[in-house]
């Protein structure tokens, strides 16, 4: 049994390459001893076969990783991540000390502000609790509506609207881009004008992507990632010269066609429409 345990250690060293790496004078006889033992012990033979399979599978996974790495433009990826942090600067770490003394406070300047807050509170209460559907319940705080439910409902509605707006704006932008360079080969895509819009969409994209951590939104996150890539490409479109083919001071048709191809291949417009609809029916 002790022999079997010792042999197992040699098996692991051998298969993980440690024995070959060390290449010391003992590595040859150790391997020979292991081979001889495996030849005679059926239990160790079975275990060696399983170990070999484990190492084989992990090697396969490594090969698959290497293959998938070949298709990635690492330079562009590093630049994309680098650009990404420009939109997401770390919050300042220093905090300001706050002290409040009611006896030395200038109340006269605070009165209008407090009155404003008070009026805003009344307005919000009215908007939240006023329910015209119920007969005789024009008073704020009708019993049927709980404040907590109303607040969370308002929050959910706003979040949904925000996302739907985002998808609608992206859809419009992409539809506009798809119309460029069609029959007559001219592009009216002005990089400077559109860049601001693309940046604002990028900011929203990053925000939503972070918020959707629930597994049920996995496909939405994937779509957001694809759109993020696309938006980065759009931000970096060259300004171009007026002399370029089909260009009026904006991006060249060659660049735009590359992006159009991606949108077509990934069916982004269709996905945007479907996910937009999905969100309106989803309980967040």
């Amino acid at each position: 049994m002790t022999d079997c345990n010792r042999i197992k250690e040699i098996m692991v060293d051998y298969l993980s390459g440690e024995l070959i790496e060390s290449n010391g004078p003992e590595s040859g006889p150790r391997f020979a001893a292991m081979e001889a033992h495996v030849g005679t012990c059926p239990r160790c033979r079975e275990e060696y076969a399983v170990l070999k399979k484990i190492y084989g599978v992990t090697r396969d996974i490594n090969d698959a990783a290497d293959t998938s790495m070949e298709s990635i433009d690492w330079e562009a990826n590093a630049e994309r991540i680098g650009r990404g942090v420009v939109f997401k600067r770390p919050a300042p770490t220093r905090t300001r000390e706050f002290s409040f003394n009611p006896f030395h406070f200038n109340w006269s300047s605070a009165v209008p502000a407090l009155a404003g807050v008070f009026l805003l509170g009344i307005l919000l209460g009215y908007l939240l609790f006023y329910n015209p559907g119920q007969p005789g319940s024009s008073l704020p705080g009708a019993a049927a509506v709980q404040p907590e439910t109303a607040l969370s409902r308002l929050e959910t509605t706003l979040a949904k609207r925000g996302m739907q707006d985002y998808f609608r704006q992206t859809q419009l932008l992409l539809t506009d881009l798809m119309r460029q360079c069609d029959d007559d080969g001219t592009a009216s895509w002005s990089t400077g004008v559109n860049r601001r819009e693309v940046r604002s969409l990028l900011n929203k994209n990053r925000y939503f992507n972070r918020e959707l951590s629930n597994p049920q939104f996995l496909s939405t996150r994937r779509l957001l990632k694809q759109i993020e890539w696309l938006l980065y490409e759009m931000v970096t479109l060259d300004e171009g010269d007026e002399g370029d083919e089909g260009n009026e001071g904006g991006a060249s048709c060659e660049q735009l066609r590359r992006i159009q191809e991606f949108i077509r291949k990934e069916r982004l417009l269709l996905k945007l429409r479907l996910v937009g609809k999905d969100i309106s029916y989803t309980e967040i």
Binding site: I61, S68, N77, G82
Partner: peptide, 14 residues
């Protein structure tokens, strides 16, 4: 990022 991204990719791919 350029220096480390591929190393992290391999770890995460595993």
């Amino acid at each position: 990022v350029s220096l480390y991204q591929q190393k992290i990719y391999k770890l995460a791919y595993g």
